[in-house]
């Protein structure tokens, strides 16, 4: 039973993109951000979307995360056609199955760290007591439980990004979308974030990372290279996993 289920999941992609185009503006000022993109992402994968600034990689991520609507083409998430997902169903999908990590963090600076982490649970109508418990657990995973009562503004960049990861995993998501998760961080703190993200991937969470950082991309199972709105190359790194494990080991050493 278990095995057949696993196989079925492997066969249906978690996210399936067909002929996807996105155009900004109208007619003369129209700008094609993405053109006829085809991409399949399977459960448990880690995928890096690499490209220069303005290549369309962020737009692609936003479309996959159903934060934006495509101009043409279709997106299927867990077998369901995204264009048909509207209102409550769409909100529920984002709330229950997606986690977001942004380069700019997007934290409510006036709220406490705990409040920021439990926001997705609050939106999901989880009771006060329960959501606090779950959020503290998530903070424990990112090693920031002792900062729960602090104001979000009082944290360093690395700590902020870890809070964002805690917020992204608090709803136990199937997919984590990370947009330049290490972009604003120095290499040491960046490594910690990377370890956290790939640690989650190891536990079965699908990871989609948008980055211009080749080193970070190399850690992923798969690299999707985008130039001017087109996929120019897809590579699969065989050594990705070994590199990753080394990085994790180094990270652990640093922690100690």
């Amino acid at each position: 039973m278990e095995k057949s289920k696993l196989k079925a999941e492997e066969r249906t992609p978690l996210i399936e993109i067909t002929n996807l185009s996105k155009t900004y503006g109208k007619r003369s000022t129209a700008f094609k951000a993405l053109e006829k993109i085809n991409l399949k992402i399977y459960s448990g994968e880690s995928v890096a979307i690499i490209g220069k600034s303005g290549s369309g990689k962020s737009t692609l991520m936003h479309l996959m995360a159903l934060l934006d609507q495509p101009t043409k083409g279709s997106i299927k998430v867990m077998g369901a056609n995204a264009s048909r997902l509207k209102g409550r169903k769409l909100n529920k999908l984002r709330n229950k199955y997606f986690g977001f990590v942004f380069q700019q963090f997007f934290m409510n600076s006036n709220d406490t760290v705990l409040e920021n982490v439990l926001l997705p649970l609050k939106i999901a109508k989880v009771s006060r007591f329960k959501r606090k418990k779950i959020a503290l657990k998530a903070l424990d995973i990112v090693d920031l439980e002792n900062k729960a009562k602090n104001k979000a503004t009082d944290l360093s960049g690395g700590q902020k990004q870890r809070v964002c990861i805690a917020r992204a995993i608090v709803n136990n998501p199937k997919i984590i979308f990370a947009d330049e998760p290490t972009g604003n961080l120095d290499s040491g703190t960046g490594k910690k974030i990377v370890d956290l993200l790939f640690g989650l991937n190891k536990k079965g969470v699908t990871l989609i990372i948008v980055t211009h950082d080749e080193d970070l991309a190399a850690l992923c199972d798969r690299q999707v290279r985008i130039v001017d709105g087109n996929i120019v190359a897809e590579t699969r790194s065989k050594r990705g996993s070994s590199l990753r494990s080394r990085s994790i080991r180094e990270g652990e050493k640093e922690d100690r």
């Binding site: 995360a65 909100n91 709330n95 409510n108 926001l119 997705p120």
Partner: peptide
């Protein structure tokens, strides 16, 4: 903040 709330599934 509104953008974040919406991204996280607030209706």
């Amino acid at each position: 903040e509104i953008g974040l709330d919406k991204a996280l599934g607030m209706s």
